[in-house]
């Protein structure tokens, strides 16, 4: 089957397609997250070999939000780049819709990380390389959102914020390498490394399912937002005035 992808670059077609798939993403998000949390809370050991007690279960909301916060940043830059290269209106709208969900998940990651840090390390916050770079990620998200809303002309604000997003992309590898650098003596930190070795299979399953759930959540929320943005930006077109929602 051959699908004409460019058909969905038109806001009109994308609007209706997104409307159809959003419910499925919500169902998937709720089911996966619920299963992941259930597994994480009831099928995993109560205490870990490294001395952590029940509170390590914060990992099931922490890790998913951390990964999604970083992944959504990459997706945001991807859409911004598509917009810069092909000058398609829709990709800028996608970038703009992604930024807010990304910023929100960054806040979730920082907040849950703070609570976990308080229980295990003994502090809410520390100027550790990993924590600091993640805080900067939040600032860049906020900078992008502020820049987007600062310029009234959407064509200009789209371009300007796309450039900012691109510059900020330099940070994502820094966050990763802040702990996992080749020479461990050069990047000692408080935060543990992000190694996926040696994780008990049930804990791993909980992590995978909640992360997938958060991913589906991101799809649903971003598509909902992009539909709002499409309506706002295209409100003077005939196709919007013919929609059954406004008749």
């Amino acid at each position: 089957m051959k699908i004409n992808w460019f058909k969905y670059a038109a806001p009109l077609n994308f609007y209706s397609l997104a409307g159809k798939v959003i419910p499925f993403f919500w169902v998937a998000a709720i089911a996966l997250t619920a299963f992941g949390l259930y597994w994480g809370f009831f099928k995993t050991p109560d205490s870990l070999e490294n001395g952590m007690k029940e509170y390590y279960r914060i990992i099931f909301v922490h890790l998913g939000s951390v990964w999604m916060a970083m992944w959504l940043y990459i997706m945001m830059v991807f859409w911004a780049l598509v917009g810069l290269v092909f000058n398609t209106k829709l990709s800028y709208m996608m970038a703009s819709a992604t930024s807010i969900t990304g910023a929100l998940l960054t806040v979730v990651a920082l907040a849950t990380g703070a609570i976990w840090g308080k229980t295990s390390w003994g502090t809410w916050w520390d100027w550790d390389p990993k924590l600091t770079t993640f805080l900067i990620l939040l600032f860049i998200y906020i900078g992008y959102i502020a820049l987007q809303s600062a310029i009234d002309d959407t064509r200009r604000s789209d371009k300007a914020s796309a450039v900012l997003a691109l510059v900020g992309l330099a940070l994502v590898p820094v966050i990763y390498s802040a702990v996992n650098c080749p020479d461990p003596t050069q990047c000692s930190s408080l935060h543990q490394e992000s190694s996926m070795k040696n994780i008990e299979p049930n804990i791993m399953r909980g992590i995978i399912f909640t992360t997938l759930g958060f991913w589906m959540y991101s799809f649903a929320a971003i598509l909902m937002r992009v539909r709002n943005i499409i309506l706002q930006r295209e409100r003077n077109t005939t196709w919007v005035s013919k929609l059954k929602e406004v008749n």
């Binding site: 939000s65 907040a111 976990w116 308080k118």
Partner: peptide
């Protein structure tokens, strides 16, 4: 208490992630 720490984290995550779709609607 530890249970409350976990609940605190879950609460914050749920709060923010419910807030978003409601705001969008």
């Amino acid at each position: 208490n530890y249970a409350d720490y976990i609940l605190g984290a879950m609460f914050i995550a749920a709060l923010l992630m419910l807030f978003e779709p409601i705001q969008l609607m």
